[in-house]
Design a protein around this nucleic acid. Sequence first.
DNA 1: CCTTGACTTGATGATTCTATCAAGTCGTCA
DNA 2: TGACGACTTGATAGAATCATCAAGTCAAGG
Lengths: 133, 133
Amino acid sequence: MPTRATEPLYRIKADLFKSLAHPTRIQVLEVLAATPDHHAGVARLLEATGCEASQLSQHLAVLKRAGVVASVRSGNHVEYRLTAPVVAELLTTARAFLLSRLAGASDQLHAAAELPPLPGASAQAVLDAAAQQ
Amino acid sequence: MPTRATEPLYRIKADLFKSLAHPTRIQVLEVLAATPDHHAGVARLLEATGCEASQLSQHLAVLKRAGVVASVRSGNHVEYRLTAPVVAELLTTARAFLLSRLAGASDQLHAAAELPPLPGASAQAVLDAAAQQ
DNA sequence: CCTTGACTTGATGATTCTATCAAGTCGTCA
DNA sequence: TGACGACTTGATAGAATCATCAAGTCAAGG
């Protein structure tokens, strides 16, 4: 039970976003979301983030406390996994927003300059390009 | 241009989530997302959040810096709006996760106790009930 | 003009987060 | 069993965030 039942939803939601509000933790979730079964070992996360073991461990603890990931000990090492596929959706939605913001800003600039957008620089093109990774 | 182009995406994403990581800011976004055209005046936000004007203003500034909302001055008062509909989607996805977590926890408890779930307490039922608000 | 209302901006102490380093746990293998 | 590897936990100094209060801007209305 990661949260108290008596807390209002907007507070719980804020805590969820707070658990995502760090670059290293985003990197971790991106790695997990990128694997077919949404899990990975600590070693994999260590090399992906390039940070110190204890630091990674603390960030993983934050994600675990938030109920975003869960861990399983497998012999001498530990595997982490997303607790729900919708977590990956959260990341892709965030990316969609960021890309729409870039595209929107670009469109705004072009509109302000009263020039047609460059070929391959439209909002859709940006999204298409990004979809390839 | 809310962010530098040279920053890696995971850092930009973390900054986005950081801008959402406060109860008052979530309340603001919920109010905006709940209106048909995704905008509302400061007075409306003030009464919805119940916080002091200067405090609200600072939270609005955070959201604006993150590019999540934009403001328009209309005579003597100011209107805020979501910069993109996908922001609302971010909130509903977060809620979907929280609900799936509750439902999942409930299912786990039932499984652990080796008892059948109560009628109306399944994951789907929780989601259905929540969909009504 | 100048006052008043609606917001925003600045400054400051208190709380919370983060990175670093030391120490601890828990399996495995010699 | 006892040393090593893989992680986790604790402690602490430094950085960032937040709430509060004072002061500032800006557009109507008198």
